[in-house]
Nucleic acid binder design. Structure first.
Lengths: 337, 337
DNA sequence: CTTAGCACTCGGGACCTATGAGTGCCAAGG
DNA sequence: CCTTGGCACTCATAGGTCCCGAGTGCTAAG
């Protein structure tokens, strides 16, 4: 029902609309792409495409613009991810290699994506629960208060102050620190919570109240509270496009951590690019935007997600290329440290 | 040359314009504020105010709007900081008290300012150089690579990975860690750099290459690189106002760390609110905005700055009240931990 | 199925006008 | 000298009209 030419027409409409921002008509279509048929023929095709819901006209006497469904077909069947140029790949590599800690890696990743796509970039920190404990440090602040610092193998460093039920001397702290590190070190944080109960036996009764109770609670709450660490950048790029819903709504959505998380979407297969187009996006207020996201991390161990948000009228092949490439390089960089 | 009534007129113009966003004319002025003179008299006053550059008319047959100079006079002489309501103060206190680490305090502070002022909030992390070292942790990653974690008395935790010239065993690491902490602990970071040279003598020759060289370099670079940690929030509030220069420019400026730093301005006396109005702002692209900023921290020891950015047409008394109050409470919270 | 021809639609720009808020100025009054 | 009512003037804005042209759908012929 959709022959080859109709698909080609749809592709042409999407490409033209994305680059010009203006509804595209049958005439300009045959001009720019060398179709060897007349505008009238194209019009017939367009009528069919419209009937099927792939394109629409803003008003009667205007050209056509793609619908969400049209973009969907375009992404699924009519386009291929555009690989980055060699120069761009080199730029990514060197820029990321300059990072000296995780915060810096994440920040640079955001910048990279913003630069490459000229849109809004969203990057999630490596999941805590999926990470393994590299080291736990306890720093006494006062006799009844200490600072817990958690360091994971993915480079995340999280901190939390703890109020102790009983006063504690330095020796006890050192002892508990040693026990905690030998027992929990190297284990995934998701397993650690369960192991805390075993830990109690290895700690003398005098220290148990503090150590056991407090640490168990703290590890859990620290992990839960920080699981969803996520940042974005490139908001200025939103101002360039005009959103029907007003960009205030979009900006508000972006400033909500929870919304950002949902934006990157539920689990999909790692190493696959996910594209959400317009209304496919469940987040209210972002239904005139599209999101291209993917996992990053080693092939065997996905760490977290990153993505790009822009108007539905975006350069999908280019954006997908950039997101894919950046995710790959970030994975490499983190694997090395 | 500016008698009392003229000043009152200016104040009324500022207040009306801020609340209505529309040029204010002589008639509406006498209506809303009960002047006991006629519009004509006010017109005369306005002519004088305009001649002196405190107000201007967008076009011939429109009312007047304040100029930067007009706002300046208003802030300096015609208004007083509006104290927050008891409810607001309580809200601030409880919201900030819920924070469990420095990142959380800063994040909540941003949110608070955004909520209270409905504008853009900018908060700087406590200065590293001004802070004292509470603990330094060295975590071996590989024999030739380790993670340096720096914890300050202001609650900042900074990390950095280090490549070592020679391989290192755990014992050496522990030893150096102990030495470093006893020597540097409690000292200001600004002094620490200088003390690193003395440190060398206490470390056996075998470990010196690694310890001395690497630590010295690292402390310095870590401090320098992270000195300017600063975040902002509330960009969505910019969309509500319309900036002559387009808000794209403003958003772009906000995403630059360097610009954010300059925004909070050079050193002024602690505990004093600084107000920069329109063109007083040196940052290009932000000359149609005003910034209200101040130091936070204990009275004796300023930690860093925070502030609010909005259109020149902002509620100065209210904004100043909010900024001042939040700064005070943040200082308290940080002093307690 | 393709194509040329043709009538039709309708958004947007150009142009005009009416409206009215707001002004500056002046002359008279306190 | 300050204040005030009166008055002519200005000009941005909103609404109305007109026209143009890009783009369409339909039809009939190739």
């Amino acid at each position: 029902m959709l022959d080859d030419r109709k698909l080609t027409v749809l592709r042409a409409i999407v490409e033209d609309y994305v680059s010009t921002t203006e509804p595209v008509g049958s005439k300009s279509l045959v001009d720019r792409h060398h179709f060897d048929v007349s505008p009238a023929t194209i019009r017939n095709d367009m009528a069919v495409l419209e009937e099927q819901g792939f394109i629409a006209q803003p008003h009667t006497s205007a050209g056509r613009i793609p619908t969400d469904k049209g973009y969907r077909l375009f992404v699924d069947r009519l386009s291929s991810v555009k690989p980055l140029s060699a120069a761009e790949r080199r730029a990514i590599e060197t820029f990321l290699a300059g990072a000296y800690n995780l915060d810096d890696v994440v920040m640079r990743t955001v910048r990279l994506l913003v630069q490459l796509t000229r849109q809004v970039a969203v990057v999630q920190y490596p999941s805590l629960t999926r990470s393994a404990i590299r080291h736990i440090e306890l720093v006494p602040l006062t006799p009844q208060k200490l600072l817990l610092v958690l360091i994971t193998d993915t480079g995340r460093v999280e901190q939390c102050t703890v109020d102790l039920p009983d006063p504690w001397d330095d020796a006890s702290v050192s002892h508990v620190r040693a026990v905690v590190n030998t027992c929990l070190g190297g284990h995934k944080l998701s397993d650690a919570a369960a192991m805390v109960s075993d830990l109690a036996e290895r700690i003398p009764a005098g220290e148990r109240t503090n150590a056991n109770a407090v640490l168990a609670v703290l590890l859990a709450s620290l992990v839960e509270r920080n699981e969803e660490k996520i940042v974005f950048g490139g908001a200025a790029n939103l101002a360039a496009h005009d959103f029907s819903k007003g960009l205030r709504e979009v900006l508000e959505a972006l400033e909500e951590q929870v919304v950002l998380m949902r934006l990157l979407g539920e689990a999909t297969e790692p190493a696959i690019l996910t594209v959400r187009i317009g209304a496919e996006n469940e987040v209210a207020g972002l239904q005139s935007t599209s999101v291209v996201s993917t996992w990053y991390g080693n092939a065997d161990q996905p760490l977290a997600k990153l993505g790009v948000l822009g108007p539905t009228r975006m350069d999908y092949p280019g954006t997908m290329g950039a997101v894919g490439a950046v995710a790959r390089y970030v994975g490499q960089i983190l694997a090395e440290s």
